[in-house]
Amino acid sequence: MGENIEFKYTVENGEFQRAGEASSDVKQKLKAMGVDPSIVRKVAIAMYEGEVNMVIHANGGEITVTVDPDKIKMVLDDVGPGIPDVEKAMEPGFSTADDNVRSLGFGAGMGLPNMKKNSDNINIDTTPGKGTKITMEVDLKEA
């Protein structure tokens, strides 16, 4: 241990069929590394919500996952439309998803709240018209 391990993923635009592939891959890798199942679950859920958001709102993007001895860090970087009102977007139930997204069972406005719930630290850096960078950390200590 001691060395940081990094995984990188590209999330494609509009690829609803593939949404979740990056999160599933991270889940399997963390499991194989022997990370506590409850921590793996938090990472998988938080990252999947972010991945789906990228597909729905941001024309895809890049995800970098870093595992160090203390925590798992996920950086989700997109060049989408940005979030005009982050506070509003964090409210459970607030959604700007269209009917197509809703017909698939998403778009209930639970994504960001769920990302917050499943991470120990979340930072949202967004500029309308430029993109959004979300950094989430899940502690490896105290399962």
Binding site: S23, S24, V40, A44, L104, F106
Partner: peptide, 13 residues
């Protein structure tokens, strides 16, 4: 029963 259901089932364990 769509593909996203499977993703959710997998990720929530």
């Amino acid at each position: 029963g769509n593909i996203n259901t499977l993703a959710v089932a997998t990720l929530t364990d």
